[in-house]
Amino acid sequence: MLKARDVMTDKVVTVKKDLTLRELSDLFLAHRVNGFPVVDNDNTLIGVVTEKDLIEQNKNLHIPTVIALFDAVIYLESGEKFEQEVKRFTGTRVEDIYQQDVITVEPDTAMKEVASLMANHDIHTLPVVEDGRLVGVIGKVDVIKSMSQF
């Protein structure tokens, strides 16, 4: 049975959360990928930043519906969500826009499970981690190449 370790790319370009968005844009252009794993100094995966995250940073800010009651303002939507949107909208570094909740697989994960995760969650690149450390990535192209071996 084919496993993640058999098809993953182990030479992975990663970014740190203090990278500027201008530098991130340059990396996207240079490497022609749709996302980068975000790691700390120990190569522990802390998130992922995608082209979509960068593009959404430039979209219009959604102002939540509020009502004023006496001297208080009450959000009819999540105030926390609004704060996150403001942070993304005004962000200048990867830490302002990256996704911290990341679906990952381990090196021994079966490729059928990898393919299912990617399809069910609309993931283009899946980080492969071992003991929290990034050891590789699997892209949709890797899955397609491996399909003849399922």
Results as ranks from 00 to 15, higher is better:
F28R: 04
P64Q: 04
I46H: 06
K81D: 05
V102N: 04
T65I: 11
L126D: 07
L29D: 13
D18N: 11
R22N: 07
T9N: 11
G91E: 07
I74Q: 01
L19G: 00
T50Q: 01
K11Y: 12
V33K: 04
I144T: 10
E80S: 13
T20M: 09
L117N: 03
D101H: 13
K87T: 14
V73I: 01
T20A: 02
K52S: 10
E130P: 03
R32Y: 12
K145V: 07
E85V: 00
G136P: 09
I46N: 08
E130M: 02
E85K: 08
T20W: 06
A119V: 05
V7A: 05
H124P: 15
L134R: 01
D53M: 01
R5C: 08
L24A: 07
E83A: 09
E80C: 13
K112E: 14
R32C: 05
E56W: 11
L19S: 02
Q100R: 14
K11W: 13
N34C: 15
D131W: 07
D6N: 09
Y75H: 07
A110C: 05
R93K: 15
K87V: 13
T44A: 12
Q57K: 14
K3W: 10
T104V: 15
N34K: 15
T9P: 06
D53N: 08
N34T: 15
H124S: 15
E95G: 05
S78L: 14
G139A: 14
L2T: 07
N60W: 14
N41L: 12
L45Q: 08
V66E: 03
E51T: 02
E77M: 01
R88N: 09
L76H: 09
L27V: 01
I67P: 03
I55D: 08
V15W: 01
S148F: 13
F150L: 02
M8Q: 15
V12R: 03
V86K: 06
V137Y: 09
T14Q: 00
A4K: 12
K16Q: 08
D96L: 07
L61W: 10
G91F: 08
N120T: 14
T125M: 13
